[in-house]
């Protein structure tokens, strides 16, 4: 962890219009939750639908995509990362620092609002709010790690990330059961499933994978992507100019 890299990353990430975009998504979640609570009261089914479908299924992957790719992608694209790379700094520490900044953003704007929405929808800081808040937090970490790696290995990280988060997880995952096993969302749902406990099936908080598989896959993706991003950053080609 390098404090200077973290400060520069945070300022780039939260500067200009990106901060507004990042704030817009949790604001929509909280507004929807407020409206649902006002119109339908404390409906658990509705809460699961909103928290699972919108918060975990859309808000967290999109935030992970914006924060994960935004933490390093623009600097690689415009070449300004050369000022960080031309320093005696370990490349893994650069990646870990940028990942931590992205995770902090997704936790603050994804996991915390998910928990808050859960409280708003159920009327209590009970199991559902904690389950989805926790699932959003761990999913956010894995998404960030994956998208930081994508930003290091490809200039089309946002497009590839969108294809994964929205097309693979949301669209294909709905119709192809096997695809769900390769979904960060499903791995995080396994944790929510465990927290909710015996009522999980009844409430529809179910995952395509079991808890051990979910935890192992989340850890594998997070650690593997972070390690590989550091390795690739060591040999990154910044220019094709001759």
């Amino acid at each position: 962890m390098n404090a200077t890299v973290a400060r520069l990353t945070a300022r780039s990430l939260l500067g200009r219009r990106r901060a507004l975009l990042l704030l817009l998504l949790p604001a929509v979640l909280l507004a929807l939750s407020g409206v649902a609570r006002a119109l339908a009261g404390t409906e658990e089914d509705l809460a699961v639908g909103l928290l699972g479908g919108f918060a975990l299924g859309t808000l967290v992957p999109l935030l992970g995509l914006i924060a994960g790719t935004g933490a390093i992608g623009p600097e690689i694209d415009d070449g300004s990362i050369v000022y960080v790379l031309a320093k005696p700094l370990d490349r893994h520490s650069i990646v870990v620092t940028k990942l931590l900044v992205a995770v902090a953003v997704v936790t603050a704007l994804g996991a915390v609002p998910t928990f808050a929405a859960g409280v708003l929808l159920t009327g209590t800081a009970g199991t559902l709010a904690v389950a989805f808040g926790l699932a959003a937090a761990v999913a956010g970490i894995a998404y960030c790690a994956l998208f930081v790696l994508l930003a290091v290995v490809t200039r089309n990280a946002v497009v590839v990330g969108l294809l994964y988060a929205l097309v693979w997880e949301t669209l294909i995952g709905q119709f192809v059961p096997g695809a769900q096993a390769l979904s960060i969302q499903q791995w995080a749902l396994a944790i929510a499933d465990e927290v909710v406990g015996s009522r999980a099936g009844q409430l529809g908080v179910t995952s395509a994978v079991g808890l051990p598989a979910g935890v192992v896959l989340l850890l594998a993706v997070t650690l593997g992507a972070t390690w590989y991003a550091g390795r690739r950053l060591r040999t990154i080609r910044l220019t094709s100019e001759v």
């Binding site: 780039s12 300004s80 050369v82 005696p88």
Partner: peptide
Amino acid sequence: WRNEDVYRRIGLVPEREAMYDIV
């Protein structure tokens, strides 16, 4: 190549103009 320690002895001025414009 792949030796971060050399940057203690090298100062680099890249051609590209992009810097951290937010600071």
